[in-house]
Design a protein around this nucleic acid. Structure first.
Lengths: 357, 357
DNA sequence: GGATGTTATGTTTACGTAAACATTCAGTGG
DNA sequence: CCACTGAATGTTTACGTAAACATAACATCC
């Protein structure tokens, strides 16, 4: 029965808010206006930094604000302005390497632009779940949406979006229907495979990600294309599920392939598992087998041996997502088209010339 | 010039919203009420599932809602009700292993309770930055705050929080001032160190996290205490910065210590670097040196060798954070005290009896 | 010196919702 | 059969803000 009373807080000594606020509700513009002896509109002007206020009046208002601990009520503001200055973020799980960093960048860029980011977790990656999330989102305080998700799950869902909410999709295709920002999967893959071919490997094996992943699909396609263009025969494709564990299991199989001298793993985690499998089977990396990854997770430099990999600029992806969403909001027209963020090959010690035999 | 027109969407065929909404603004209760031939209050009742509405009327209203694609305006709702049903989340970076998973769990639990989660990234971990974030937060649409952060950065900041906003702190101490949820750092450390001692190691080295980290500090303290209690002499403490790279550097030094047979690394990433350093220096794990980590990141089972480590239940931490915050909101009283989430020792292949010598 | 700006400020109103209060109407008991 | 109850519905109002529209005071120009 004393904790409820905590209104004045910092200014307890200097004659706090009186009955300014009824319960514990913070002071409103009207309260500030009363104390400063001006109209609430003037308070509004000061609050928003609008011109047409004497420096003197301004100071009085600011003083009153401070005295009462005034904070603009964002709900009222949003209601009046018709915008929330908030971006919704729809993902399955944050726990994928890329996602986190992208999200981090999104949150940071958004903050810089004065936008907040609201998380919209989707428990299970099914169309129904996604649709559910979207319709919940409809009544959510959100001006725009960034979706990090395979597009085929999105299709049905997007229909239930309120009309004025803009969308940007990361990590997917569908540039024909939405603004899409993605890492240049094909370019990165090409660099990786070419690097191995340039070293003298006859061909390159591929440890792919799960079939239902767009990124995995793209990387697999680009791998095959690059080999085709170079006139090499693609070995059978080996599948994992992104996890190090799956990389290990797949790696045990690959290790038995005598003729395999180079492997392109679709991500660093699987590369990690692969390294372990090769090590266990006595195939030396990079002397017997070269391994290259994708992502450049922070740990990859500490693998045994340090992993050559394709660096993804997740931060840039995040930034461009925000950029795209804000641009669409300004124009209040949806855009289409895909923005590709380039990758960079990071050379470490897991790739070398093939054994001379 | 065709993209702007996307209002009726799903119900294009069935005589859409007419001039119901002026521009592209979605329909309001008044619009629905008009169409259904009832008062807006009745619409409100249906919308909120309140009693006192005939099934017949209810159906009419629902039909009208569907027709117009009505979505409650959350800003107006928040303004009226005085709550946003949103929890703010303050962190530096999402990119720490633990943080992401905790945040994921927070978002999920919050969603289950009908709360949204708004991200509040703090660029640089300084008191000023944090204070800035808090005051921005003051005018943010947030009912409560979960802070994942060292408490010493929080101190000055919390003062600028609006009085009715409840706080829960994760991953820190300060149970005397806030509700705190944390992993049982001491318990996990104790288990790890005891496990090594039980195997027969004379003492255990510690590869600690950075000094400014509360978790690192706690783990280092518990390590020392456990050794003290067992009557063993703690070797000099070695510091890293959580990164695999720092673990590698520190590991090179540790590898030279002939008498070192067991190392407790404060996280799995550093353990990874340590493994690499030991490998390079020809010290076999676990034959020559046992290594144990902390966190149980998904990859740790694929290290060379698979890492014995202390599993943290980040999801549970997240869940309890939300629980705590909601409980405080209901009571509208802040609580104090710390909730510890237990850890679990995961035995893999990086620990063994010490070499017989 | 009066018409005309210009600047600082005040007043009214609307944003969409939901609580509080008002009304209507059908059924019930005395 | 009428006052009374209670359920269904309608009307009024307030939440806090800011745009739109006044007004007031004072400087400026011819």
């Amino acid at each position: 029965m004393e904790a409820v009373e905590a209104t004045g807080s910092t200014s307890v000594s200097s004659n706090p808010g009186e009955r300014s606020a009824r319960r514990g509700h913070s002071a409103s513009m009207a309260d500030v206006a009363r104390l400063a002896g001006v109209s609430s509109q003037t308070v509004s002007r000061v609050s928003n930094g609008y011109p047409g206020v004497t420096e003197e009046t301004r100071q009085q208002v600011l003083a009153a604000m401070k005295e009462l601990g005034y904070r603009p009520n964002s709900a009222a503001r949003a209601l009046k302005r018709g915008e929330f200055r908030t971006i919704g973020l729809i993902t399955f799980t944050l726990s994928t390497t890329g996602n986190v960093r992208t999200i981090d960048a999104i949150a940071t860029s958004a903050a810089q632009e004065g936008y907040a980011v609201t998380l919209l977790p989707v428990a299970v990656p099914t169309q129904d779940e996604v649709r559910g999330a979207f319709s919940r989102l409809g009544e959510l305080a959100v001006d725009a949406v960034i979706v990090i998700m395979e597009v085929h799950l999105l299709d049905a869902a997007a229909l239930s979006l309120p009309p004025h909410v803009q969308v940007v999709v990361a990590d997917s295709d569908a540039g024909d229907r939405y603004t899409v920002v993605d890492t240049d999967q094909a370019g990165g893959t090409r660099d990786a495979v070419k690097h191995l071919l340039d070293l003298g490997h006859r061909t390159v094996w591929h440890l792919a990600g799960p079939e239902d992943s767009y990124a995995a699909q793209r990387r697999a396609d680009a791998w095959r294309d690059t080999l085709d263009e170079a006139g090499r025969v693609p070995p059978p494709l080996v599948r994992g599920d992104w996890s190090a564990e799956s990389g290990y299991r797949a790696g045990l199989g690959i290790a038995d392939q005598e003729d395999c001298t180079a492997v392109f793993a679709a991500n660093d985690q699987m590369a990690l598992g692969l390294l372990r499998a090769l090590h266990e089977r006595g195939r030396k990396v990079p002397d017997d087998v070269s391994v290259i990854g994708f992502d450049d997770i922070p740990e990859s430099g500490s693998f045994q041996p340090p992993l050559t990999t394709v660096h993804q600029d997740f931060a840039e992806v995040g930034r461009r997502c925000v950029e795209g969403v804000l641009r669409q909001m300004q124009q209040s027209t949806p855009e289409r088209g895909t923005t590709l963020v380039p990758t960079r090959l990071v050379l470490r010690q897991s790739t070398a010339r093939p054994p001379s035999r």
